[in-house]
Amino acid sequence: MRLLSAFVFGFVLLSAPSAWSASCGNGPGGFEAWKQSFIANSQSYGLKKRVVESSLKNVKYNKKVVSLDRNQKSFKLSFNQFYAKRVNNAMIRRGKQLGKTYARIFRGIEKKYGVPAPVLLAIWGLETNYGSFSGNMPVLQSLATLAYDCRRSDFFTAELVAALKIVQGRDMQPAEMKGAWAGELGQTQFLATSYVRYAVDYDRDGRKDLIRSIPDVLASTANYLAQKGWRRGQGWGPGTANYNVLKQWNKASVYVETISVMAGQISE
């Protein structure tokens, strides 16, 4: 669920940023003071101060994250360029095989949420190559840096609050929260706000684990699409209602078209 430049998809503001406002910054100079103010005012977001203090204790400003936020180029490619860069025959074959391996889980998920396996496999493959790499950057550090940074401070403050609510709810520990540079988590790269709203404990182990639990990953992705209006039993090509639902996953047209085409190839 990529977060890139203008292609920022809808998100749920879990707590109004107006509840507390600290000065943003465009460099590392004021980060520590901002962090301490955030910790001091954490209760205004419905967070426990001890949880926030412990979670952010070793978090520092990350220049690399800010640089990556300023230099996003993937979605400037044409569809053919993007598809060739992101999808190959091996990925399609792998998707087909995983569809067989987890056939029972996919059947259960489709029965409950209405979303067919090929669509989930395409998203899973595109986001992290079926879970082979979901990112290794500390999510809380990325989100704190971007919440402090002035460019999209309100947006990333909401994401930071959501990530801390994941910790507070004991679904994950801070050290486990490794992901992409903009804070996306898990095998289908959920933003923290989406994690809080749409993640499900499909394997019933008491945790919503989108990093290690494949059943949770796939069911949560299906739940997201279902909540956005996925129509059971219908197609997902351009012009369909379900294609418009895929735009809720990622507003970049080349990405949505890639999901649609890749899912079609996996289903053959």
Rank of each mutant, 00 (worst) to 15 (best):
I123Q: 00
I123L: 03
I123G: 00
W124A: 05
W124R: 10
W124Y: 14
G125F: 02
L126H: 06
E127Q: 11
T128L: 07
N129K: 04
Y130W: 02
Y130G: 07
Y130E: 04
G131L: 04
G131A: 04
G131M: 04
G131V: 04
S132W: 10
S132Y: 12
S134D: 09
M137A: 04
M137F: 02
P138D: 06
P138M: 03
V139Y: 07
Q141R: 13
S142I: 04
S142A: 13
L143A: 07
L143R: 10
A144K: 05
A144T: 07
A144P: 06
A144Y: 06
L146S: 09
Y148H: 08
D149C: 04
C150S: 11
C150A: 09
C150D: 10
R151S: 09
R151M: 03
R151T: 09
R151N: 09
R152H: 13
R152T: 10
R152I: 08
S153G: 14
S153P: 14
D154Y: 14
D154R: 15
D154V: 12
F155E: 12
F155Y: 15
F156I: 05
F156R: 04
T157D: 05
T157I: 10
A158T: 15
A158S: 15
E159S: 06
E159F: 04
E159K: 04
E159D: 10
L160V: 11
V161Q: 01
V161H: 02
V161T: 09
V161M: 06
A162P: 14
A163D: 13
L164F: 12
K165W: 13
K165C: 12
I166Y: 04
I166A: 08
I166R: 06
I166E: 10
G169V: 01
G169W: 09
R170M: 07
R170I: 01
R170W: 02
R170A: 10
D171T: 06
D171R: 03
M172P: 00
Q173K: 14
P174Q: 10
P174N: 11
A175V: 06
A175K: 13
A175Q: 11
A175F: 03
E176R: 12
E176V: 02
E176I: 02
M177R: 10
M177L: 13
K178F: 00
G179C: 07
G179I: 05
G179Y: 05
G179V: 05
A180I: 08
A180F: 05
W181V: 07
W181D: 10
W181H: 11
A182N: 14
G183A: 14
G183M: 15
G183F: 12
L185Y: 08
G186F: 08
G186L: 13
Q187Y: 00
Q187E: 05
Q187D: 01
T188R: 03
F190E: 03
F190T: 03
F190S: 00
L191I: 14
L191C: 02
L191R: 09
